[in-house]
Every structure is written in structure tokens, then in C-alpha cells.
Design a protein around this nucleic acid. Structure first.
Lengths: 183, 183
DNA sequence: CGCCGAGTTGAACTGAATCAAGAAACGTGG
DNA sequence: CCACGTTTCTTGATTCAGTTCAACTCGGCG
């Protein structure tokens, strides 16, 4: 969900969003959300990388996705329905985010009527991105998935630990290390 | 995206939707959308199963997902942005759908102000479902993915060809046949 | 200087793909 | 309603991508 492309009044929306949200600075390796708790915030990332992850049936730490600068991030289900999250969100770098609560989000809706539409757009972007990931995992082999990722985020290797990237790609760290050597 | 749970005024919304949409009956094995064309309709499925699929890099037919009774289906990107679809939608059974155009959807928005919110809800449902699929493909083996699917849709084996289910699960038809034998 | 987490490399193993051949089910026309 | 061709499903043998387990290297930091 990135907004380099100009969509309906996104700049205006972001302006209102930033004005009613709270700026937060966080150091590296801080958890902004823990499993078992409710996700109280919707974040907009100004600087840094956040990792959205969970522990699978076997107890392994799995990266569900990364979020970079100029993206929103939240645990949607937990945030909107105030349910217990089963995911964690952590910073991978020194990070600056702007956060609002669900109530803040509703306020935003009333202040800026286009909010719902823009939020819709954001959700659709999320969906398309997730859809691409499904395509990747469904029938492309690991080297291809790796290339696709590097193409989208050329700097990810410098910024994120190999193990986190590996689990994101659905492979082990060892396999990723070998794949990387090939190139 | 199914609405057995009672969410804000979904019944009212569906009433309006049905009143301004067009009822369509389609026989088995009909394409409602073809790659290369623009998806002109948002469908609500009353009866039948629709398959959303594409041809991958190797030319293989891959099921992206199935949609059952009481669900919406469309190619979001193509429908909302009037772009060329890279996906197909086909009926797997005799099917009854209610369809509206994008213009109809906007009309619905103006007639029924909660439309955007309900649409939001629907998108979130989609997202959670896709998220589950990613989890499945990322680190669960084929027999587990198979069980998960059967649990969610116990009748799918009777209604859908094995090959379609196999590609949905990200495996070959032969593997699925063997997995099924085990149980 | 020595420790510790992150990354690499090797060897053996395994789940699923591939290739290939049959069997069963399905539909269509005579 | 049967006969035939076509598609769908099964089964076997082989191969291969990626895992697992284990040991080793490297770089940063106390």
C-alpha cells in the first residue's frame, strides 16, 4: 500500500491524517504490537521498516510481511474488531510513525469525508499485493520468488536480516543463503 | 467474503444491491470474464461455484480461488480501474448471480450511504482470507493444506474437479490424488 | 581478546514434481 | 441404450528442489 501514484486527493487526506495523528519515534527491535493484545493503532510509516510476523504451529517465527516508508500498517482484524491479535509488529530500524486510534480513524472519517474511499483504495492495494504473494508461493520456485522480492525492494538485503527474508519467502535461511550465492 | 455473521445493516444493503442488480443464470463451464478484457461486473453469487484462475509463466492453468454461494466476486483491479484483466472467471456449476456495473456500484453508494463501509468490510474479509492462504502456502505441507480446505468446504470434492483443487493448493493433481488416498 | 548472533557450507534425507502408463467416469451420437 | 472417444483420476518409478542437521566462518561488541 504505497502512494507514489497520485490517487484522489490522497495528499489532502494524508494532510488531515498527519494533523490528527501522533508522531512516534521508536528505536530498532521494538515491538509495536504483541500477540495476545489488541492492536490499538493504525500506523503510517515515515521512516524505517516494520516487520509483521507470527509464530507458526511448529513455534517458528514467520515473517508475514514487511512494510516500508510511506505505507500504512496495522493488524486489520484486531484493530477494527478489537480482537486479540495473533501477530506481532516490530521495528527493524530506527522508525518514525504517525499513529491514530480507531476512534481517531472515525474522527478522520467525519472530518474528511473521502476517508472511506481512500481507505477502500488502500485495502485494494493490500489485496493486490497479497494476491501477488499468493501467486509467488503457489507455483514459483524459490530463486524466482527471491528475484521478485529483490526487484521490488533492492535495498532489502542491506536492511533486513536474512532469516526474516527467508521466512517471508517461505524457505529456510540456509536455502536463501545458497540461492543468493548463485547470483 | 461471506455474510453469515450479522454486520451493520448488511441485510438492508443486500436488499438494495439485489434491487438494482441484474439476475443472471449461467450454465456450467461458462466464462464470465476472460483475460485481456475488462471486468465490467461485480457479482453476488446466489447459487453455484465460480472459479477465478489464470495461466502462469509456464502456461499452466492455476486456480487463484473459488467463490461459493453468498459471496461477491469480481476482478477488483480490472473492475475498479477498468484495466485489462489477467484473470478468468468461470462457472463450475449451473450458477445464478446478481451483477452490477461500476456505475451501478456508484449508484448504490449514493442510494445507500453505508455502501462504502460495507464494501470496506467485504474487502477486509477478502484480505483475512487471502492472509490465511498465504500462511498455508508459506509453511504448511500439502496434506495440511488439503485438510484445511476440506474443513472449510467439505463438499468441494463432490463439486470441483481434482485438478482445479490441486492447483489451488499449489500442488499437482497426482500429488493430491495420493494425499486423498491416505485419508 | 573472546564471545555471540548471523551467515555459510556440506552431506544426507524427503516431500512433491515429473514422466509415463492405465483405469474409471463422462458425454455424445448412432 | 450401448459404443466409442475424451477427459479425469490413479498408480508406479524416477528425479529434484529444498529441508534438516551439523559444523564452521565471519564481523561486531562487551
Amino acid at each position: 500500500m504505497e502512494y507514489n501514484d497520485s490517487s484522489i486527493n490522497f495528499e489532502d487526506f494524508l494532510g488531515v491524517f498527519l494533523s490528527i495523528s501522533k508522531r512516534e519515534e521508536h528505536p530498532k527491535n521494538i515491538q509495536l504490537l504483541q500477540a495476545g493484545r489488541t492492536c490499538r493503532k493504525l500506523y503510517f510509516i515515515e521512516k524505517g521498516i516494520l516487520r509483521f510476523y507470527y509464530y507458526n504451529d511448529a513455534g517458528k517465527d514467520i515473517t508475514h510481511w514487511f512494510r516500508f516508508e510511506n505505507s500504512f500498517i496495522t493488524e486489520l482484524d484486531s484493530f477494527l474488531n478489537k480482537t486479540e491479535s495473533s501477530y506481532y509488529i516490530e521495528t527493524l530500524e530506527e522508525t518514525v510513525v504517525y499513529s491514530i486510534s480507531l476512534e481517531g480513524f472515525y474522527k478522520l472519517s467525519s472530518l474528511f469525508p473521502e476517508t472511506e474511499k481512500i481507505w477502500n483504495l488502500a485495502l485494494v492495494q493490500f489485496l493486490l499485493e497479497l494476491g501477488e504473494k499468493v501467486k509467488d508461493l503457489q507455483f514459483r520456485d524459490a530463486p524466482t520468488r527471491y528475484s521478485n522480492l529483490i526487484e521490488k525492494h533492492p535495498d532489502i538485503l542491506q536492511r533486513v536480516a536474512l532469516g526474516h527474508i527467508a521466512s517471508y519467502l517461505g524457505i529456510t535461511q540456509q536455502s536463501l543463503s545458497r540461492i543468493r550465492k548463485q547470483k
